[in-house]
C-alpha cells in the first residue's frame, strides 16, 4: 500500500501590521506535485463548538507553501492553525502550528510619512496601512519640544492638514501607527522638519 505523504513541518506565522501569513516547509516527493490545505480554529470553536475546524477555501489544494490568513484572524483571541498535504487521493496527517496565534502579537512598524510645508500650512502625507490603522501625529515648533501638539489621523486619503505655522519658523513632525482593535502602537517614525514661508521678522 502506497505510503501517506508526511505532514507539513515548520509551520509558522509571519505577522506584520495586522497582515498574517501562514508558512510551512514544502513536502518533497520526487516527481510528484504535492498540494496543501489549511484550516483554522478560533477560541470560540475550541470552547463552544466542539473544537471544530474551518477550512480556508483560498488555501484548499494549493501548491504554494504559504497562505494569507488575515481575513479569518479577525478577532483578538487565540487561534489554532493546521496544514495537510495531499498527493492525489492520499492525504497526510495534519501539521499543526505550535502554540496559538493571537493578532495582538503582530509587529507594528511606524508609517511612511512625508511632511510638507505649503505656505504657512503644515501638512502630512501618510501611508495607507489598512482599515485597522490610525495614526498619532506629534508636531512642534523646533526648540519648543515641551509644547508638542498631537493629532489623531483616521483617514489617510491624501495630504492631511495639521496646523498653521508662524512665518519663517521651522516645525518638526513624527508619527506612530495605532491599532485600536489590539490597543497597541508602533514606535515613532523618524522626525522630519520643514520651514514655513516668509521671514521671522513678520512676527516681531
Amino acid at each position: 500500500e502506497e505510503a501517506l505523504p508526511p505532514a507539513p513541518q515548520n509551520i509558522s506565522i509571519l505577522s506584520t501590521n495586522m497582515k498574517h501569513i501562514l508558512t510551512w516547509s514544502p513536502v518533497i516527493i520526487q516527481g510528484e506535485t504535492v498540494r496543501y490545505s489549511v484550516e483554522f480554529q478560533g477560541e470560540y470553536e475550541r470552547v463552544y463548538a466542539n473544537e471544530s475546524w474551518i477550512p480556508i477555501s483560498e488555501c484548499s489544494l494549493i501548491t504554494a507553501t504559504l497562505c494569507n490568513i488575515t481575513e479569518d484572524i479577525s478577532a483578538t483571541v487565540a487561534y489554532n492553525l493546521r496544514v495537510r498535504a495531499d498527493l492525489g487521493a492520499r492525504r497526510s496527517e495534519w501539521g499543526t502550528l505550535k502554540g496559538f496565534f493571537n493578532r495582538n502579537t503582530t509587529s507594528l512598524t511606524p508609517p511612511v510619512m512625508k511632511v510638507i510645508a505649503d505656505g504657512y500650512h503644515l501638512l502630512v502625507e501618510l501611508e495607507d496601512m489598512g482599515p485597522a490603522f490610525q495614526f498619532r501625529v506629534l508636531y512642534w515648533k523646533k526648540g519648543q519640544e515641551r509644547r508638542m501638539q498631537q493629532k489623531v489621523v483616521k483617514e489617510v486619503s491624501s495630504v492631511v492638514h495639521l496646523d498653521t505655522m508662524e512665518a519663517g519658523a521651522e516645525y518638526c513632525v513624527k508619527a506612530q501607527s495605532y491599532v485600536e482593535a489590539i490597543n497597541r502602537s508602533s514606535s515613532f517614525s523618524q522626525t522630519q522638519c520643514v520651514r514655513a514661508q516668509g521671514d521671522t521678522s513678520m512676527w516681531l
Binding site: G119, E155, H161
Partner: peptide, 28 residues
C-alpha cells in the same frame, strides 16, 4: 471629511472634523 484645493498650486488638503465649521487661515 473636507477637501480644500488651491487652484493656483493645484495642491489639495484634507481635514477631518466633527463639528460643522472650519476656518482655514493664513491663505494667499
Amino acid at each position: 471629511n473636507v477637501s480644500v484645493l488651491n487652484k493656483k498650486t493645484k495642491k489639495r488638503w484634507f481635514f477631518s472634523i466633527s463639528n460643522h465649521t472650519l476656518v482655514v487661515p493664513w491663505l494667499e
